[in-house]
Amino acid sequence: MRASLGERIGNYTLLIVFGLFALGPIVTIIAAALGPDDAGGGTSGFGNFGKAWEIGHFGTYLRMSVAVSVTVVVVSVLFSILSGYAFGTMRFRGASALFYLFLIGIMMPTEAIVVPLYFDLRTLGLTDTFWAVALPQVAQSVAFGTFWMRAYFRSSSRSLVEAARLDGAGHWRTLWLILVPPARPALVTLIVLVFMWTWNEFLIPLVMVTSESLRTAPLGLAFFSGQYTSGFTLLAAGAVIVGTPVVLVYAFLQRHFIAGMLEGAVRE
């Protein structure tokens, strides 16, 4: 298929225009973050990040975000491997009913559960704690993770499981020595998706947390943007600090992000 020169120019123009549309807002914020401080603070370039870090307490918020993200990723991926293994390779009474119960969690919006969660956890004295932020997100990620790992174990494992069983391996060894090692790509996808969802989550920490030391990075940024009104430069620098970790992971593992978000949706 050969296109005329005019057509080719038209196609590349379209590509560039939409590429710029997607990048534009991100570029404006990076440019503002690197420009001279419009609040007259005298900093510019990378100095803005240091200043925003200090004024906006981003060190504290990032520490909380890292702690929450690591906890949610480790716990939910581990639990998802176990439950996905059972749903994908074992037969037991009520398995499909239980699985459908997990599927509800994939579609359920946070808005529906955050209200009762807050008031029930308040009764138990658990609001404004680390676990009030982490555990609801483990529950959400476990719903998707169970679905994701079940699909993986189901599609790939029949002959492997049977071979392992003939060799006399128990169910526990079969999982960790035979099934998990080749599941690495599926696991990486699950890990990056759960990391992204947890890092970017806003509503749960907003509702659950009042102490400043428990604020996650997006929550801290929202408060900073409400309180710091003298200019845009430091706010932009703060936004870049908060957005960068996920974008950095995306830069290296973008195939996993795209495949995971699209396949996860397609299989629903």
Binding site: V75, L78, F79, S80, L82, S83, Y85, A86, F87, G88, T89, M90, R91, F92, R93, A95, L98, F102, G105, M108, I113, L117, L135, P136, V138, A139, Q140, V142, A143, G145, T146, R154, S157, R158, V161, E162, H171
Partner: peptide
């Protein structure tokens, strides 16, 4: 799904189900 009927399946599901049940 492949595999023989196994009661042990419930045990594998338990941790995920506890968190999911309690918090969702």
């Amino acid at each position: 799904p492949p595999g023989e009927p196994r009661r042990i399946g419930y045990l594998y599901i338990l941790p995920a189900f506890l968190v999911y049940g309690a918090f969702l």
